[in-house]
Design a protein around this nucleic acid. Structure first.
Lengths: 224, 224
DNA sequence: GCGATTCTGGTACTGAGTCTCAGCTTCTGT
DNA sequence: ACAGAAGCTGAGACTCAGTACCAGAATCGC
């Protein structure tokens, strides 16, 4: 420790990111809280005060993402379709803003079962936020289970997309995610807006001499 | 301790159930592992050997339910609709076999946030089992995200149903659950079997003098 | 410059979970 | 019936996460 800390030339790295990196390199279970605190330049006491626990330091990003999402859904006046898509993509963006850090964290999760379990708990908060939003904005007559089911499905698809992105760093993954979400929500139309082509109506007129076969063929052609 | 344990007149209660009961009465956080082990008549060492942890003792039922479900889905030759419905209902049945115990455990969960978080982890195993099954049995051409989304939705609906049953001990809840599941899966038809009435076809024949209004009314009547 | 507040580091403590050892029961072969 | 093997149990020591408390340093407001 230098006296009076003259000036850090290197910008102090976010201690959270440094912690994740250290854990990924040395192994989560193998690293004691003291060692981790030392590694990122603070005392054990301060570490727990700041991050709460060894697990939480890995997921502190989600706090921000979640509150952004919550705020965005509370104040938007767009359709449920757009709000969900935009909110989801913004969260994804935030979590992959630094691709390098995202990859390190993913590696850490991959090698640590207990952290993957913790991740489930975290992502479930998103599920609740979505379910609340969907319940609020659902059409009258929407059954009680629909927002719950759709919210769970949205989060699951989102997670699958994130994992896909981590496997193959393909920026098209986000466009794909958006299409998947739209198609998913379409399955639950018309409860949350969106047109569901539940009943297509074909009105065909034939003269009275048309044979049943002719009618059938004409209708079949329309159905593709 | 009596010498040579002459004979238990009362059938020894399942230590797991006794543990849950004790925890519910005395508070989860307030109960140390030693006290709990004492309460159910074993040493601290044996307690950890048998149950693994204080948390797991609460959820040990799920191990059985999960393996039953897995086996059932692996060997069934029914439609996905029926298999999912039957499997889900069997799990529900197993978990509510002893309504009294189910209620005690629910009360324990209600008053213990950390256990609710643990529950999320447990139920996620069901999600994986369902997703695997759905992926295996999906029609060719089903998008990758569909089994994931549907599995998440199924588990979410199932959980909501279980909570509903706990709130108001209404045995009709199970019939309701079954209808909800069928309707949910119908939303994902035709990927996992089941007919989706995506296009209803109405063929109406009118004589050539019919006015457009007459045609419209007749068709509208059919659409209800 | 100076109290008040906040932040930090150090130490002691509780309690979960692991490990090892010694004794006891149960099973097995003879 | 007996000896030995294998498994189960209880006891104690140990590691480590997380909490509580206290004393000193830094920072803020004036």
């Amino acid at each position: 420790m230098s006296i009076s800390t003259p000036r850090d030339d290197s910008v102090a790295p976010a201690p959270q990111a440094a912690a994740v990196r250290y854990l990924a390199e040395h192994g989560y279970e193998q690293t004691t809280a003291s060692a981790l605190a030392d590694a990122i330049g603070m005392s054990r006491s301060t570490f727990f005060r700041r991050f709460g626990s060894k697990e939480d330091v890995v997921f502190s990003d989600h706090d921000l993402a979640l509150s952004r999402l919550q705020h965005q859904l509370a104040t938007t006046d767009r359709s449920a379709y757009d709000s969900i898509a935009i909110g989801t993509l913004e969260v994804t963006h935030l979590l992959t803003r630094d691709p390098d850090a995202a990859r390190v964290r993913s590696e850490l999760l991959r090698s640590t079962p207990s952290l993957r379990e913790r991740e489930l708990v975290i992502t479930h908060r998103y599920e609740r936020v979505f379910a609340d939003y969907l319940r609020r904005t659902a059409e009258p007559g929407t059954p009680e289970w629909a927002p719950i089911a759709l919210a769970a499905a949205i989060v699951a698809v989102h997670n699958a997309s994130l994992r896909r992105w981590l496997r193959q760093n393909d920026s098209r993954a986000f466009g794909l995610l958006e299409r998947e979400l739209v198609e998913l929500m379409g399955r639950f139309a018309p409860w949350f807006g969106g047109e569901r082509s539940e009943s297509r109506v074909i009105v065909a007129s034939f003269d009275a001499t048309a044979s049943p076969d002719e009618v059938l063929r004409a209708v079949a052609a329309h159905l593709g």
